[in-house]
């Protein structure tokens, strides 16, 4: 998946001469945590976060004392030297960029112009979609031998039941290196028919299993 598919394109931005007060109100009103700062050509010149604004705001015990500070322009507090991304970057790689740099927002630049923004929330959302939980379905987990063709054989069982598969995740089984666990989200309210089919074919179904077994 590429960044372009998940980035937000309606960007709320300010210019460096806007005041800290303006940014504060915008962050509260739009319930956002980052505002990119652009010039008249829509080139990115900085970024401010809710934390930058908080650092610049007077203590809650002194709200009356330093009112003039809030009228200062944003270039006095904005971060420059921003890590940015490109619309064709891969979402998987962007995830690593977030972790390595400990950031939670990435402006996306194309031909020097700001074209999008991705936040940690957007990344999480795409992860959620990856697991298929945003569509009505049931989840089943099957432990299978780690060898070619297994996924094919399993998917045939679903096909026979005319059951649509929303998503498949594969991860290594904990107790043995020769098996993998398939986590499938399938579009049915009654997974037991296909679970019976899987068991009949000799597959180990981890969930759903009999009640009483801890999850």
């Amino acid at each position: 998946m590429i960044v372009e598919k998940i980035m937000k394109k309606e960007i709320i931005s300010l210019t460096e001469t806007d005041t800290i007060q303006t940014a504060l109100l915008l962050i509260q009103e739009k319930r956002i945590r980052h505002i990119p700062i652009v010039n008249h050509e829509n080139h990115l010149v900085g970024l401010i976060s809710d934390r930058d604004i908080r650092d610049a705001s007077p203590s809650i015990f002194r709200t009356e004392d330093f009112k003039e500070d809030m009228q200062k322009p944003l270039h006095t507090i904005m971060k420059t030297n921003i890590i940015t991304g490109h619309p064709l970057d891969f979402v998987e790689e962007i995830g690593a960029v977030f972790c390595e740099n400990n950031i939670s927002c990435l402006p996306i630049i194309h031909e020097k112009k700001l074209v999008g923004i991705i936040t940690g929330t957007d990344l999480l959302q795409s992860y959620v979609e990856l697991t298929g939980v945003n569509k009505p379905g049931s989840q089943i987990e099957v432990q299978v031998p780690d060898q070619p063709g297994v996924l094919h054989n399993i998917s045939c069982i679903f096909k026979k039941r005319n059951t649509n598969i929303h998503s498949v995740l594969v991860y290594p089984a904990k107790e043995t290196e020769y098996e993998k666990v398939l986590v499938l989200r399938i579009q049915t309210m009654n997974p037991f028919l296909v679970v019976d089919d899987l068991k009949k074919e000799g597959y180990k179904v981890i969930w759903p299993s009999l009640p009483g077994i801890s999850l």
């Binding site: 298929g132 939980v133 945003n134 569509k135 009505p136 379905g137 049931s138 989840q139 089943i140 989200r185 049915t188 309210m189 997974p191 969930w207 759903p208 999850l215």
Partner: peptide
């Protein structure tokens, strides 16, 4: 919980 059960939400 929708962790496993339909519809998941």
């Amino acid at each position: 919980t929708g962790r496993y059960l339909f519809p998941g939400t």
